[in-house]
Amino acid sequence: MSRRATVSHSAASSQDPGSAAEDWWVFRGPAELPEPPPWRNLGGSPRPSGMQQYLLSPEHVAVVNAALHLRRPLLVTGRPGTGKSSLAGAVAEDLGLGDVLRWPVNSRSTLDDALYRYDAVGRLREASMERERRLARSAPRRLRHRARGRHSDIGDYLRLGPLGTALAATDRPRVLLIDELDKADIDLPNDLLVVLEEGKFEIPELARLPEEQQSVNVLVTGSRKRVQVRRGTVACTHFPIVIMTSNGERDFPPAFLRRCVRLDLQDPDENKLREIVRLHLGDEALDDAEDLIQNFLQRAATQTLATDQLLAAVHLRLTGADLSREQLVNTVMHRLDEIFPG
């Protein structure tokens, strides 16, 4: 008997042979994977019209527009699951600005991570190989084929990070998401503020080049495209749309806050939860979701939960999940402010 066909007695005995629930099995069940949830359809077919909408009140829309007019970073605060990170994608889609540049921040992040990376070791290795090629040119003809290779310059070993790429954009602004900035080292927000205020930064490795090499084509984040950097300085033509998120784990310096437009996203109420379910899963999902919505609201009053946990529970039910409501709640709607026992 194949391993896939082996099902434990306890699992098999929980349902009748040939029951509809077995159609839901993937692991030790059918060999074909099901369609992903609409919000997890990464790189797949386009989602139906309306699925990509982002729910914001008119007051919140006005705050976003204020940041756009002022060319100021938008600092979005709120509990996990309130849609802070998704706002960047909604703005980029609405304005037709392409893919979002993302910089996920943690306690080890530095400003240089977001500006550019320089592969000094790779360039040193290439320089060594170039010396070998020069020596090989004087070798016998039968050995010269080993010396063939493409000469590279310093631009091949530099890649702009997400912030650097956003500042280097020339044809239109880019949307930059700086996610969970409150996890950063205490000095990072002020370091970031300097670059955003000036709209430019210097790459020392390029600034030190001789005059005849002062124009270098450098790789950007997310593609093999290049931008031209002159005299070692990246200066923005279009100020990027910067959206920074915070879960409120720490306070920011007053000087930093003064230069941001702030948007606080509150937990969704009952009506907004229904609208979120409808937009992501369709009108027909609401009837199946009502008890899960009520359960979510009751639990969220005393626990930390995220809206996408509710969506996951509803999606599993719609796909015929072989799980009771209690199992759904324990599986995907568990509290986020609890440390699980070891």
Rank of each mutant, 00 (worst) to 15 (best):
E290G: 00
E290T: 10
D291W: 09
L292I: 06
I293M: 08
I293H: 06
I293G: 08
I293Y: 03
Q294I: 02
N295S: 14
N295L: 12
N295R: 15
F296P: 00
F296Q: 03
F296T: 05
L297W: 03
L297R: 15
R299D: 00
R299L: 11
R299Y: 02
R299A: 09
A300V: 01
A301H: 11
A301V: 00
T302C: 02
T302K: 13
Q303Y: 02
Q303E: 15
T304Q: 14
T304F: 01
T304G: 00
T304N: 04
L305N: 02
L305G: 08
A306G: 10
D308W: 09
L310Y: 07
A313M: 07
V314I: 11
V314P: 02
H315P: 00
H315R: 12
H315K: 03
H315C: 04
L316Y: 10
L316S: 03
L316R: 08
L316I: 12
R317N: 04
L318S: 06
T319V: 09
T319W: 04
T319N: 07
A321E: 03
D322T: 01
D322S: 11
D322Q: 09
L323G: 02
S324K: 11
S324T: 15
S324C: 07
R325H: 12
R325N: 13
E326M: 04
L328Y: 10
V329W: 09
N330K: 15
N330I: 00
T331P: 00
M333D: 07
R335F: 01
R335N: 10
L336A: 10
L336Q: 15
D337G: 08
E338C: 06
I339W: 08
I339Y: 06
F340R: 14
